[in-house]
Write a protein that binds this DNA or RNA. Structure first.
Lengths: 223, 223
DNA sequence: CTAGCATTCAAACGTTCGTTTGAACCGTGG
DNA sequence: CCACGGTTCAAACGAACGTTTGAATGCTAG
């Protein structure tokens, strides 16, 4: 069993996944044809169906390759926080959730940045099957983080917490997608757009403040 | 010049716009075929090309019908705030921006809710032409609100303000899209999902806190 | 060396897409 | 009454799509 054949064995798969990640980010799923995709990957048109079965299965593989490790890291980060003596602060929990994503943002060469932008867009994907796929992959993570935040913020009604997590998630998703549709980011220094450390500091400050916003108005209106 | 013909004159156009709004929201632009669209609208297949010229022009018309009045209302709201004696507070500015959108959320019958969800998704639309269209329609509004917030928060660096506006916009967009990809909203009372007053209270509290988050960490990291 | 297997390849399949065509329809003004 | 402009209609157009096919290729094991 020679070793030299181990890598090239899956090289075509990897080339397809890399090309798909970038093209899906640029043009969306429907806007990326198999012909364009295989041409960019430098493989035959039939290679996608041979290696993945179908275009839909390729889409799923693109997400699984990045999202499974990312969410595992999120769970591990929470495990580490909860293993300590004192209970984790809300801000620490937010950071544990954010950092696996922001590590990908910092990874320009490996294509992680492409994937993160793709992911940000996919949260609002119309195709039901894709939304379901993402939802399934996130479900255990969201459960754990919801419980952790509920323990860290015992004074907050669970329903309000759920909404604020939703807001936080939206901020992250939109920031990552970073399509600059509303031409805001155009007004900031370009080199800051993908400075992961700076972005993390800005996001954490914003989200932590939002999560801990006073409850007064909401409770009064909800009553 | 008989009056009875004035309304039916554009009935086909309206029927197409209504059907397009709902189908684009459900299946996206690429996922909505002209045949499905015209069937739902109860018009002939060729009607879209006759009345709008092309599918792309129809997409633009769908957005112009709702977005132009919405952004005009945003500008009018800001005018009203700035016409008063004392300068407007940041929270008031946020509310002036949010309320035209939330009025559409409350409009279930007229299809405004459909449009708002469509809009939330389109901020992250891969197709460049559509993003540009939305960006153009938002540009004057964002300029005015950026200036207003900068005056209301003189101590905040402009660059930081731009990022926080970006975060705020993301929160709104994702909340409106409300695809529940991450299965969070599933955990809240269903009737609250479209209670515009409740949503406005929750959003305003969250966004106001985020906008006024302490600057310490960011400035230190940026130095 | 050869048989066997995984992979690659060019070509074609049937379907669906947005758009166009030219005739039919119909209320209105001359 | 007729003729005309705006509108609707069924039918067809060429292009692009995802997928399938069957032969060619190249490495591996016996």
């Amino acid at each position: 069993m020679p070793l030299r054949a181990v890598r090239p064995q899956h090289e075509t798969r990897t080339r397809i996944l890399d090309a798909a990640e970038e093209l899906f980010m640029q043009h969306g799923f429907g806007g990326t044809s198999m012909r364009l995709l295989t041409a960019k990957a430098g493989v035959n048109l039939a290679a996608v169906n041979y290696h993945f079965g179908s275009k839909d299965a390729l889409i799923e593989a693109v997400f699984r390759r990045r999202l499974d490790p990312m969410n595992q890291a999120r769970l591990a980060g929470l495990d580490a926080l909860e293993a300590r003596a004192q209970p984790p602060a809300p801000e620490e929990i937010i950071r544990a959730f954010l950092s696996p994503t922001l590590e990908l943002v910092a990874d320009a060469k490996g294509g992680g940045r492409n994937f993160v932008r793709l992911l940000g867009r996919t949260y609002t994907e119309p195709a039901r099957a894709i939304r379901q796929l993402i939802g399934q992959m996130y479900a255990p993570v969201m459960d754990r983080y919801k419980s952790a935040l509920a323990r860290a913020l015992p004074q907050m009604p669970l329903e309000e917490l759920v909404w604020r997590m939703h807001f936080m998630f939206g901020t992250l998703a939109y920031t990552l997608a970073a399509t600059d549709t509303v031409q805001l980011i155009a007004g900031c220094k370009p080199e800051d757009r993908y400075d992961a450390r700076l972005l993390e500091a800005r996001l954490t400050a914003f989200l932590h403040a939002g999560l801990n916003a006073p409850l007064g108005n909401v409770i009064r209106k909800a009553a």
